[in-house]
Amino acid sequence: MVFEPKILGFLCNWCSYAGADLAGVSRVQYPPNIRVIRVMCSGRVDPMFIFKAFQVGADGVIVMGCHPGDCHYLEGNYEAEKKYNMTEKFLKLIGFDNRVRLEWVSASEGTRYGAVVTEFTQQIKDAGPSPAKDNEELLFKLKALEMAAATDRMRALVGRERHITEDENVYGEKVSLEKFNEIFDKAIKDEYERAQVLLSLEKGVNNVKLLAAKLDIDPSIVLEHLLILKQRMEIDFGEIMENTPVFVRL
């Protein structure tokens, strides 16, 4: 059977959704694999939505907004880009980054909308069905990504990125983009591992040794994550079993 991918699109009301309508008015023909969710602004697309979409069977997800400088809400598309970049970085950790796309499509670009959807559909066809379907291991990882992206640390970093790198803080300091990205990439890795730790605890993988083996991380790093998660009051020491401390998720 021919593989027909399931593609989810998030379209901003003012530009891309209007562009999609114009494609209709102009009878531009494109593959019928995309299902559209309308949002007012591409900046509304919470990264959680994208991880969720992959967990329920999406083969590809595309976010579309207004061209830079054309945002109906002034700068919402820039925020969308920051959120999208984080999502892409997270997905890269599990090799899903070729299944997402961010595109700018204006209300007048009906033909381009059709071309973008056609091209993205082909990209997903080439990539094949999402390996996450009925794959416990990958679903576990996607869930961990969703949790990691939802932490206040990641959300604050994304929300403040433009402020931190483009404006000065109250002390007149500005963080360079390189420095910011360094911190950001480290945070991505850490939070993904911590989310996996949390999810593993639920499954009874509850001491440093077991966690290190399951997640393939150095035990000393696992311990660091556990201490930070304890500080955040997400986990606690349970009991000592055979000289090994056991942790529980709160």
């Binding site: 949002v39 007012m40 602004c41 900046g43 509304r44 697309v45 919470d46 109906h72 809400y73 919402g76 925020e79 959120k83 939802a150 206040d152 959300r155 604050a156 994304v158 929300g159």
Partner: peptide, 17 residues
């Protein structure tokens, strides 16, 4: 204006769009 960026950014998911 209801763009929803604040809600999608809110660090503790407190804002509702």
């Amino acid at each position: 204006k209801g763009c929803g960026v604040c809600g999608a950014t809110c660090t503790n998911h407190a804002i509702v769009i």
